[in-house]
Each structure stands twice: as C-alpha cells, then as structure tokens.
Design a protein around this nucleic acid. Structure first.
Length: 507
RNA sequence: GGUCCAUUCGUCUAUCGGUUAGGACGCCAGGUUUUCAUCCUGGAAAGAGGGGUUCGACUCCCCUAUGGACUACCA
C-alpha cells in the first residue's frame, strides 16, 4: 500500500476562498487519518493573474486554522521535491512536454487568440479537437520545416494534447464512483504556452502530482469535467500505474439563490468568505475574514468540516483530532452545500462556552483596552463568567457587560414607563441607606439583606428589583442584580442609585 | 447549446429495501428567571414528478423536471 500523500495546490490569485479552505481541511484530515503527508504547492502558472501577498496569505490562513503542512510552501526546510512553486519548475515541465511532442501525443499550434475567437464566432460550438485541428495552423497541418522556421522567427505557439476521439474514458472517483466521458467531447487542451514558457494547469498538475508522489487528489467538483483529460495525460506520460486516486468534493453554494459561493455573496449578505482579512493590492479593496470577525479557528474548522461531510453519528462538535479520527471520504456527500452563516455563528457560540472564563477574559481585556478601559484580569474574568453564556463572540461581551465599566448616562424609556412608579424614588432612597449599612458586599449577603428589607416593608419584589436594575444598568438586561453590584462595588452602586433618583422623572 | 455531476424539513444532514423518516441550525409556543439572555420542554417543517423492479421502495433502474459545474494560451 502506497504512502498517503495529498496536496493542497491553490493558485495565488487573491485571498483564499472559504471553499478552498474546506478543500485544504479535507485533504489534511484525510492525510492525518492515514498517517500521510500534506503538501502545499503553489500553482502560479498564470503569470497574468499572480497577486503579490496571496501566497503568504494562504500560509497564514492555514496556520491560523491549525492545518499543518508537512512539505512544500510554508515549511522551513525545503522538501525532497523542491521547488514547490510551479513558476520555479519551468525546466521540469519542458522536459515532459518535449516527451509528449516526440511521441506524437501532442503538437504545436500557432493559432493566435484572435484567430481562435474568429473560429468560435464562425463555427457554432467550435472545439479544437480531432475534427477541427486539420483546419488550424499547427504542426499537423504545416510542414516540419515551416514549423521550425516559425519558431525560429520567434512566433509564439502553444503545445496542445492530441486527443484520440471515440474512446470512453473512465475516471474512478472515491466519492462519485465511476464517471465515464467520451474522449470526443474533450478538446485538445493547451498544455504549454511559449509566451511565458510555462505549462497550463493540466500539465503542471499531472507532472507535479507524479513527481511529488501524490497518492490522492482531493479537489473541488469544478475539476471533475477535466479529470478524464488528466487520466489521459497520465497514460500518455506512461504513469498510469502510479496515477493518484481522485476525489471530487461537492461545492459550497450561495446561501440564497443559485450558484457557487463567491466573494460578492459575503459582501452582499454580510459575512466573511475568507479566513483572514484581505486587502487586494491592486484595487485596494478590503474583504473581511473570519479571524478578524471574532471567530475561533476551531469553530471555523468544525463548521466547515460538516459542510459536505458527517460522521454518521449525531455528534456535532469535533476537535481537530476527533475529525481526523473519524474522517472518511466515503461519508462525503455528493451534492453541493448551501453556506449557512447562522450555523457558523452557533458553532462559535459552542466554542465560546467551552473555553475557560480566564481564556476569554484575556481576549476581552484587549478589546476593553481599545475602548480605553483598563481592568485587572481577575475582575474581567469574573464579569466574563456572568455574561459569557449570552454571547456568540468575544466582542458580544462588550454589549452585555459595558455597564460594569461605565455607569449608565441614560435610562431606557420603556422601562421607566413600566418600572418607575410614583413610590420608586423613595424606595430607591431607602435602598441606598440599606446598602450603605452593609459592610460585607458579597452577592449572597446583599441579597439576603435587601430581600429581608423588601419583605419587611411589604414592597413588591419585582417592582423594587426592576427599578434597582434600571438605576444601575440603565436597561432591563443583564445577570443577577446582586452579582452585578458585587462586582461594581458598594460605592459605585450607591452613586448610580442616587443619580437615578435625581435624574429619572416620571412622565 | 454540449458534456458531466447532483436532487430527504427553509438550511446542513442521518437512513445503505421493511423506521411513527432521526439529529442539528433557524423559526414558533410554553416553562424557569426580579430584567434580558441562557437553560428546559414541546411544536410546525422533508423523500422533485412519472414510470418500472420487488411481497415491500426515500433507498435499485429508466424518463422528465430542477439545480450545479465545466465548456480560455484561468486555475
């Protein structure tokens, strides 16, 4: 049994899309499950679409998510198959292109893009293949000398694969089973372009997967139509015996409407489609990322893992290790998954609840500092413990707990109307004296004393407590009142009560 | 247009011929709570349609419909 070696091979054309992240994740899970290696290779064979910074972005994204690379880009020591950037492997591809040319399995074509466009306009459903290549300008229609002359003249050309028609090409897919496509519908794809001396995806991909000893190609469904071409390339190159196994993953779809999830959907619907914030160096346009939106990487991984795969059990929360242990390609679904952002939030909520108060407090402390509030970790931890369960994100904690740090400056009008009665100011003034007399300001003690007072005076518990809350918090929300005042302290509590008595007027 | 892939609650999905078609998100209702939230309980909610095969189909086959991907000197 061959060692499992998989690769994630994005092209550096911008930020790593969330669908790409899932592909990387599934590759990683599969590799680790089988004790194999995960490679990161950069497919930068399209010089025109290269975007600076994209490669670093990809490396940083995977690192943030905990998807560890064993070999290739982003690893300190160059691996045994270096380089791992396709633009740096020109000579390698050239050799195999020549091999194909010499064997008569590929040919040179001089048709310019303009000429091809003209043909497409002229002939409906034009396809460069066995039926049409005799009409075109290539080494099959030109004499050997003319081909040589044109090349020596510096004329640009491409190398095309020569597909023999009318053969049923079979692709064994680990997720979909056998897929059969007739070779007649495959066109003579460009394998190599002289303009930049670089191969196209198809050629580079097959050559590299072979040389890097890739055992399984796990990639998006958009590659399924070209898989037969790749099978043919392995055959033409004489590598059928070591051809990797294929698995084509279902796509991530738009939450609403139709089509695959795109960057624009994120902007339109208000959620990130990238792992990290990204600023496009050309347009200056920025896109938000899950990290900066406050997601925990574990939540993103967990959420993504379940978009197209399930364990077959009712478990929903998985650590990376559990995912590795339970992952299996035959439990990957065949149909596309609509991206459900609401569920993503829920996953973050679960991880927030799972984390220790102190860990969250450490993060929250930074947010507080940005708001100009410096607090000791102990106190922040205590506050976190009181409000954590009502938050999905660490940032939500601010909305739930800001009153711990700053006294209310205004009071919720609806609540005044409902809870601030004619007798309230007198009761609150009385409450001030009750609280003033308390030395031990713990929640248990203040609760006992205040409740005894309310009972003794035969006041309405709800009436007093709600007015008390309004005075201290400013709104009808928050944790248990006595927990709140234990944190903010006696002096501040009394101050807030006094201010409420002075400022709230009954309409 | 052509080729290929897919089709269970609104969404993610379980079911691998016999189930009251299960779970989760979201939604709704009730309960707990001095407030809000949490939490607890409950509820509504699905096999695209039509043919077969079979004692019996969500499950297997065919057709139709619908959705998606691909159809570049992009990946």
């Amino acid at each position: 049994m061959r060692k499992v070696r998989v690769r994630f091979a994005p092209s550096p054309t911008g930020a790593l899309h969330i669908g790409g992240v899932r592909t990387a994740l599934y590759n990683y899970l599969f590799a680790k499950k089988h004790g194999g290696d995960m490679l990161l290779r950069i497919e930068d064979t399209d010089s025109a679409r290269f975007v600076p910074g994209a490669e670093d972005y990809i490396v940083e994204s995977l690192k943030w998510l905990g998807i560890e690379i064993d070999e290739g880009i982003g690893v300190d020591k160059a691996g045994p198959h270096a380089p791992y950037r396709q633009s740096e492997r020109k000579a390698i591809y050239r050799k195999y292109v020549n091999q194909l040319l010499e064997a008569g399995l590929a040919y040179i074509a001089f048709d310019t893009p303009a000429e091809l466009d003209a043909k497409r306009a002229e002939i409906a459903n034009f396809q460069y293949d066995a039926k049409t290549r005799g009409l075109m300008t290539n080494s099959l229609t030109l004499s050997e000398n003319e081909v040589k002359a044109r090349i020596e003249n510096g004329e640009q050309y491409v190398v095309r694969i020569k597909i023999e028609p009318n053969e049923e090409i079979k692709v064994q897919d680990l997720i979909r089973g056998e897929v059969v496509i007739n070779s007649s519908v495959i066109d003579d794809k460009v394998l190599f372009k002289s303009s930049d001396e670089l191969p196209t995806y198809h050629m580079a991909n097959v050559v590299d997967d072979y040389l890097m000893e890739i055992s399984h190609v796990i990639r998006g469904e958009e590659w399924l139509p070209s898989a037969p071409l790749h099978v043919l390339l392995y055959r033409y190159l004489g590598w059928t015996e070591v051809m990797p196994q294929f698995a084509h993953l279902p796509l991530l779809l738009k939450p609403d409407g139709n089509g695959k999830l795109s960057k624009r959907d994120g902007d339109r619907l208000g959620f990130p489609v990238f792992p990290l914030n990204w600023k496009d160096p050309k347009t200056g346009e920025t896109s938000s990322g899950y990290r900066e939106a406050g997601y925990f990487p574990e939540a993103v991984v967990n959420f993504l893992s379940l978009l197209g795969w399930n364990s077959g059990t009712e478990q929903e929360i998985f650590s990376m290790q559990e995912l590795i242990d339970q992952f299996s390609l035959d439990r990957v679904s065949k149909s596309g998954a609509k991206f459900d952002y609401e569920k993503g939030k829920w996953f973050n909520n679960r991880y927030l609840q799972l984390k220790s108060n102190e860990e969250i407090a450490t993060i929250f402390q930074q947010i507080l500092i940005e708001k100009g509030i410096e607090q000791e970790l102990d106190k922040v931890t205590r506050i976190v413990s009181l409000v954590k369960e009502r938050a999905n994100f660490v940032i939500d904690l601010w909305g739930q707990s800001s009153f711990f740090f700053t006294a209310p400056t205004e009071y919720d009008a609806k609540t005044i109307q409902k809870r601030w009665k004619a007798e309230t100011p007198a009761q609150m003034t009385e409450l001030i004296s009750v609280l003033t007399a308390i030395d031990d300001f713990t929640a248990e003690n203040t609760e006992t004393i205040v409740k005894d007072w309310i009972t003794a005076k035969e006041y309405n518990l709800g009436g007093v407590m709600n007015a008390f809350r309004l005075s201290v918090v400013g709104e009808p929300k928050g944790p248990h009142m006595f927990d709140i005042i234990a944190v903010i302290g006696k002096e501040e509590t009394i101050k807030r009560l006094q201010r409420a008595v002075n400022n709230i007027n009954i309409k």
